[in-house]
């Protein structure tokens, strides 16, 4: 079996995988990083979104082997160094941007990607950027508000 090595949340990791092992399986089963979730099998729901080399990607729609050598960031890597909630995470709590929490890791990772590219997105831009992330609980209202709040907090913090 091939060995893959990558950096996940700043730590070097490696493991033996099958050709068919998905990145999300490597994260959840090999690394016990169970914050990344699987909500569908057709690449639609976005619960599995992680950041690979600076881009949001669906980790259930990507082979672990193809992430060999990559820098991967997951929800477990989003808190501040002291363990407190990061800006986006805090904005989600402050604005009730989650209910059951299952889609939340993907939402936060997609928001992180959006705000890195577009620090002041409009409501329409936020909604369009969430096209690949399904939430069944919130009706999206408070997710949009959370991302707006995170944007404001980041802008204010600069």
């Amino acid at each position: 079996m091939p060995t893959v090595s990558m950096t996940v949340n700043g730590k070097s990791v490696s493991g033996e995988v099958e050709g068919r092992t998905l990145l999300v399986q490597f994260l959840r089963d090999h690394l016990s990083l169970t914050g990344t979730h699987v909500g569908c099998d057709t690449g639609q729901c976005g619960a599995c979104v992680v950041n690979v080399n600076g881009d949001s990607m669906k980790s259930c729609n990507m082979l672990a082997a193809s992430a060999d050598g990559a820098e991967v960031k997951t929800i477990e890597g989003m808190a501040n160094d002291d363990g407190s909630l990061g800006v986006i995470q805090q904005a989600f709590q402050d604005n009730h941007g989650l209910q059951c929490g299952f889609c939340t890791p993907g939402m936060v990772m997609t928001a992180d990607d959006l705000l890195a590219r577009n620090p002041n997105p409009s409501e329409v831009e936020i909604r369009e950027y969430l096209e690949g992330n399904l939430c069944r609980c919130t009706g999206y209202h408070n997710i949009v508000k959370s991302i707006q709040a995170a944007s404001a907090a980041m802008t204010a913090g600069e």
Binding site: H37, T74, A79, Q93, G101, F102, V108
Partner: peptide, 19 residues
């Protein structure tokens, strides 16, 4: 009141059955 359960959900520390 802000939701206390959010902290675990937002940090990937939730404990869903598949976890």
């Amino acid at each position: 009141s802000k939701r206390r359960e959010d902290v675990r959900f937002l940090t990937g520390a939730g404990n869903y059955t598949d976890d």
